[in-house]
Structure formats: structure tokens, C-alpha cells
Amino acid sequence: MSRTKKLKRPVASFILLTNVIFWPIFCLVGAVKLLGFPTLVFDVVRCLSAWSSTFAFAILFKKIYPTQSFAHFVKKKLTNKLHLSVIVVVLAIQVSIFFMIVLLVWNKEGVDSILTISSWGMLSYYFIKNLLSGPLGEELGWRGFALLELQKKYSPLIASIIIGFWWGMWHVPIWLTTGFMGIDLIKYSLFFMLSIISTSIIMAAFYNLNQNLIIPIIIHQFFNFFIGLINGNLVDLLMYNAILYSLAAILLILINPKNVLYKTVSMNN
């Protein structure tokens, strides 16, 4: 009876395969857009591209955890009791950042409509679309596996920065389709990376406080959802996001509740 050989560098293999899967699907997203397919088709294919990390993790799973089942692994990530206090603090941070950005945009640009969506129906569709095309497809691989795996070797803070960097780099194809060029593209990329790494630190802190994958999913969802709601210059929005999420991450590093960012945290596979 043959035994599955464990991967020596599981996180590196996961990141590489995630990109290998993502690029062709992302090209398909571009083709769907160029060929003028209906918006719903575009949204479905785009959503599929966001699940590349989950696909990669599922493919590699038996080489990473030979004695476990994928379904059992996922179930364990969602079974720990959610702490209301953690959810409230997370939402308070993100809602506060949202309103601060709204005020900054309003004062600077004086736009007639500060929000991009004006009906409850569109708001609901946008919320669900964001949930399916980001948090649900990405967090199992990036936080549920990669962050956990790196925390076996590094402190949660260092692990979150490493994961934040590679998670940000995974988005590079998206940067190249924004239409920005020159200094605007440089600003967009820098602010994007700073936002992503700061958010990764925040995710690690609260995920380690309440070891349930729903926590990073919530943080990821409202990070995407809120910035898409505000009607303003995208580079400026990313700059505000980068500054405010960085301040929140720095505050968490300084407070370091229950030492969740410095000491090695035991998280169940």
C-alpha cells in the first residue's frame, strides 16, 4: 500500500499552485468582459477566479495532511464558538474606518452622492457578490491553512506579514487591469499592499483570539464591501484605507491582546 508523501514546503507549494490556477481563470474573466457577455456571467467567472486558493489547497490537501479528510478540516475551522465581543470589536473598527473615509471624501470632493449604490436590492446583491467572490473563496487557503502553517515557525505577526505580502502579490493581475498608469499605478499598488498587509495583521490578531474562520471572513468581507460602497477616486480611497487600516494594525500590535501577535499560538489543524 503506497503512502502519500508529505510536502516539504507546503505554503510555498500552495502559493505557487494558487497563482497557476488563478491566471488562466483571470484571463477567462478578461475574455468574458471583452466579448460582451452579460454581467451575471462576468460575475460568476470572476467569482470562480477568487476560489483559486481553495482549489489549490484542496488539490494539495492530502500531501499536506495525509491522515485527515478535507471535509473534516473545513468543519473544524468553523466549529469553535464565536465570541460576540470579538465580532463587535471587528465591526466597530471597520465601520469607524468606513465613516471616516466617507467624511474625508465628502470634504475633499463634495460629491453629490457619496455612495455608489442607491437601492436595497442592489446593496444586497453587491453584498452577496462580494462574499462569494472574495472572503468565502480565499480565507480557507490563506488564513485557514497558510497562516496556521507559518505560525508553526514564526510569530503570528511575522506570519501575517508574510501571508499579507503574498496575498497582495496574488492580486497583481488585477492591478494591471485597473487602467492606471505611471505614478497612479505606483500609488495604487503601494496603497493596495499596505492595506492588504495591515488587514492581514488585523485578521491574524482576531483569528487567534477567536479561532473560527468566520472571523477573517467577516473582516475580509467588510474590507471589500465598504470600499466599494464609497463614490470617490479609487487611488484616494485606497490611500485612506491604507492609512486607517495601518493605524488599526499598529494599535493592535501595541496593545497585543492576550499576546496573540507575538507568542506562538496553538491552532488546531
Rank of each mutant, 00 (worst) to 15 (best):
W170Y: 13
A205R: 06
M169E: 12
L82G: 02
Y188V: 04
N231S: 12
W142Y: 11
L132W: 05
I230L: 01
W167A: 03
A12F: 14
L190F: 15
V88I: 13
V260S: 07
F26G: 05
R46Q: 15
I253H: 04
L78N: 07
L194I: 15
F55C: 10
I196D: 01
G134P: 09
T54Q: 05
L252Y: 09
W166T: 02
P38K: 14
H171S: 08
S53P: 06
K187N: 12
C47N: 13
M1Q: 09
P156K: 02
S200D: 03
L247D: 08
L252P: 10
D43L: 14
C27K: 10
L244M: 08
S53G: 11
I253M: 13
G144I: 03
I243Q: 06
V29K: 07
F57E: 00
D43P: 02
K5A: 14
W51M: 06
K153S: 14
I214S: 09
V95I: 15
S124P: 00
L148I: 13
P156Y: 01
P66F: 13
C27I: 13
F226R: 04
L252R: 09
K76T: 15
S160R: 02
A205W: 05
R3Y: 12
F57G: 02
L123E: 02
I201C: 09
I59F: 15
I163P: 00
I87N: 09
G134H: 07
L131G: 01
P257L: 08
M239F: 14
K258G: 01
L60H: 13
I162D: 08
W120Y: 07
F22C: 09
F192D: 06
F192C: 08
Q151I: 06
